[in-house]
Simulated assay, not measured.
Amino acid sequence: MTTLSKVSYFWRSAAGGLKHSPFVHFIAITTIAIALFAAGLTRTAGHALDGLLASLGGEVEVTVYLAPELSPEQVEAMRGQLETASGGRAVLVNPDEALGRLARELGDLGEALAQLPENPLPPSLELAVAPERRTPEGLEALAQQVRTLPGVTGVDYGQEAVERLTAIARALRYGGVVAFAVVLFATIIIVSATLQLAIYARREEIEIQKLVGATDRFVKAPFLIEGLLQGLLGAGVALAGLWLFGQLVGPSLASLFSFVLGPSSGEPLVRPGLALELVAAGGGLGLVGSFIAVGRFLRV
């Protein structure tokens, strides 16, 4: 038998196996589809979370309050020191500008600030931090370094907000990894079990193949292809489900969270990169499950 004939036989046998036990394979395909659908939603949520962190991270600023008695030359020297230490850009905010900004933020109550006998706000430098320094540890280290500089009366960078946001993001990522690992393990076990049933149902055919001299690889190949087909079909169902979810529920979610996630929340749910990942993951799940079933329960 030529190589092309063998390959053709393997695929026909695998397709016949799917038709021979449709209910059993339906369970495996559905399980893979559910797992990949959940993984797709998790990946999309992670993508949105990364976008949120990036947008908020881009707004992280360290406000350095300066002593009023500093001369313009000293302030300029301080600005250069801060930019060198942080790798970012520092902007001077004079007391009048700071008071006007506060009045705008207070709205109608801001008119009361005009009655103050003098401006109580000090000059400050708003420092935009480089991306690699926006971690809680990096910001804390930078704040400690800046506080030691002469002429600095205070440093503020929203420490609690940054730490909470980072902790939430870390918890969501770790939780997603653990949940995906559990679902992945359960999916492999179910796929393996369904193929065991398929192998048992075709045991007489396998015995005949061995009697006429079929090799182990020849007998096992169709079952491995069956697992691959299960995974690819499951990935297709998952992608269809994600697309339908995006069409029916996506606009409502995008409208609901647009004030947090911004315009990126309206991106399509099924992106080309995600589709390739799910197809590859589905094929991998099917192959791993079939390999376990063949290796442990097909004693040929």
Rank of each mutant, 00 (worst) to 15 (best):
I225F: 08
D216R: 11
A221K: 00
Y200V: 11
L184N: 10
R203G: 08
D216L: 14
L184I: 09
S192V: 12
E204R: 13
L184D: 12
G227T: 12
L233S: 09
L232Y: 03
G213C: 03
L233A: 04
K220F: 03
A181Q: 10
A221C: 08
E226I: 12
A214I: 04
L184Y: 15
I199Q: 03
R217Y: 13
V191N: 00
V191A: 01
T194V: 15
R202W: 00
P222L: 01
Q209E: 14
T187N: 06
V212T: 06
A193T: 15
T187H: 02
T187G: 08
F223S: 07
F185C: 13
T215K: 04
G213M: 02
E205H: 00
I190V: 15
E207R: 11
L211Y: 07
L195M: 10
E207Y: 09
L229D: 05
K210T: 00
A181L: 15
L233F: 01
I189T: 10
I199H: 02
I188K: 02
R203H: 11
K210M: 07
T187I: 09
S192W: 00
A193F: 14
F223H: 01
Q196S: 12
A193G: 14
L232Q: 09
L211H: 03
E205N: 04
L232D: 02
R217M: 13
A201N: 13
T215P: 02
R217E: 11
T194K: 04
L184R: 10
L197H: 09
F223W: 11
F218Y: 13
A221Y: 04
L232A: 04
L228D: 10
L229M: 10
G234Q: 05
E204Y: 02
R202N: 10
I199M: 07
L195C: 06
Q209P: 09
A193Q: 13
Q196K: 15
I190G: 01
Q196E: 14
V219G: 00
T194M: 14
Q196G: 10
L228M: 12
G213A: 03
L195Y: 07
Q196H: 14
E226Q: 14
A186V: 14
E207F: 02
R203N: 03
A214L: 06
V219M: 05
L233H: 08
L233T: 05
G234W: 02
L195F: 09
F223N: 06
A214S: 07
I189F: 15
E207G: 07
L195T: 05
I225S: 10
Q209K: 10
E226R: 09
G231D: 07
G231Q: 08
K220D: 03
D216F: 11
V182T: 15
L229C: 05
V191C: 06
R203T: 03
I189A: 12
S192P: 03
A186M: 13
V182M: 15
V212G: 04
L184W: 15
A201C: 09
K220R: 13
T215L: 03
V191L: 08
L211C: 07
F223T: 04
A201R: 13
A221Q: 05
P222K: 08
T187E: 13
V182G: 11
R217G: 11
D216M: 11
Q230F: 05
A181D: 14
L195A: 01
Y200A: 15
A186T: 14
I199S: 04
G213E: 00
L228R: 02
G234P: 07
L229N: 02
V191G: 01
Q196D: 15
I190E: 07
Q230C: 06
I189G: 08
G234I: 01
A193S: 14
I199P: 01
R217D: 12
K220W: 01
L211S: 01
